[in-house]
Simulated scan of single mutants.
Amino acid sequence: MEENRIMFAAPGMQLMDNLEAIPGVVVKETTQVMDAVMAAVGGAYEAENKYDVRAMPPNVNPGREHGEAGAWRPTTAQLDALPRVYFVEEESNCCLRAILAAFGGLNLRALTLHFYFGNSDMYLVERPCKLGGCCCCPLEMRLYQNGQQKQLIGAVIEDFDNYCARCVGCCCLCIYKHKVLVGPTRDSLVHKYSVVNSACCFGRVNNCCGGTCCKPSFFIDIVEPDGSLAAVAQMTYGGGEGCADCCRCAFDFNNYILPFPPKANHFERLLLLTGLLSVEYAHHSRTGGEDNGSDG
């Protein structure tokens, strides 16, 4: 459709709203000073998140394990120079954010994410407030094509199909899985991929201290339903030498590199981006509750 096309100013690059035309995306959470201040002092405040989604350059190797030779480690300046694909903006209730920030449940908040393509609000992600799979209430994000009538594209749901095994995986091994499901109705959803966030040393790679100055990358596996590895995303500390990367890391303003599985179509890639944001909110963002018990 002609109205969905957009030209980017980056030299030599021209993109449409077609994720099949690019090998992957880079997601950068925008820095918000008030959030950093409130996190430092334990204040019950959190601004609505905003993310820049930019096209990953062709012919770069983002890497699949620690210490891989030739792995791409872009600086903040390099990320900012990449052509924008989407701008993602959160819409959520300020009072709910304040309450959850006070009690340590900020990462569970209900929200809507708007995917802007140029000036068009093209896609919506709806996330209800849920306690998580260990409480028999798995986290969920639903992706819709925006318009006069919303059309479901698919969903990302925390994987707790085998409750006992997943509780052991989460509580003992620090391995969290989110299923990427594609379909126009809830009854027709088909499991296409899983996003696996291993926060410790029991996953495919040792992610302890990953995404920091001690270990630049935190790897997040994208696997097929049969368990085979399809792609590897990462939360990256950055390749800069200044204090900006350190400050962004300390206050959970994260950068992600998401290579797409080559066979994934546009909507599956869009759902993988949703899955990455689901992992970001659930496991790599501020939970709040920093002052709880400090006066005791």
Score class of each variant (00 low, 15 high):
5 R>D: 08
7 M>W: 14
7 M>D: 14
9 A>Q: 14
11 P>S: 07
12 G>C: 06
13 M>F: 14
15 L>F: 09
19 L>V: 06
22 I>S: 08
25 V>W: 00
27 V>Y: 04
27 V>H: 04
30 T>N: 08
30 T>Y: 02
34 M>V: 08
35 D>C: 05
38 M>E: 02
39 A>D: 07
47 A>T: 08
52 D>H: 09
59 N>D: 15
62 P>E: 06
65 E>R: 08
67 G>L: 01
67 G>I: 06
69 A>S: 11
70 G>W: 11
70 G>C: 06
72 W>S: 04
80 D>M: 10
84 R>E: 10
88 V>I: 15
89 E>N: 11
90 E>T: 03
91 E>C: 12
95 C>H: 13
95 C>S: 15
99 I>W: 15
106 L>T: 01
106 L>R: 08
109 R>E: 06
110 A>I: 05
112 T>A: 09
113 L>V: 09
114 H>R: 14
119 N>C: 07
120 S>M: 14
125 V>C: 08
125 V>Y: 03
127 R>Q: 11
128 P>Q: 06
133 G>Y: 00
135 C>I: 07
142 R>N: 05
146 N>H: 05
147 G>D: 05
152 L>M: 13
155 A>Q: 13
155 A>R: 11
156 V>I: 13
157 I>T: 12
157 I>E: 11
159 D>V: 02
161 D>H: 13
162 N>H: 13
164 C>L: 11
166 R>E: 09
167 C>H: 08
170 C>G: 06
175 I>C: 10
181 L>T: 06
184 P>M: 10
186 R>L: 11
192 K>F: 07
192 K>M: 15
193 Y>Q: 05
196 V>D: 01
197 N>H: 13
200 C>Q: 13
204 R>F: 05
212 T>Q: 03
213 C>H: 15
216 P>G: 02
223 V>M: 04
225 P>F: 03
226 D>A: 10
228 S>G: 13
232 V>F: 00
237 Y>T: 00
245 D>K: 00
246 C>R: 04
251 F>G: 02
251 F>Y: 10
252 D>P: 00
253 F>A: 00
254 N>P: 10
263 K>W: 10
273 L>R: 04
275 G>S: 12
275 G>Q: 06
275 G>L: 07
275 G>D: 03
278 S>K: 02
279 V>C: 07
282 A>E: 02
283 H>Y: 08
284 H>D: 05
286 R>F: 06
287 T>Y: 05
287 T>K: 10
287 T>E: 07
292 N>F: 07
295 D>T: 12
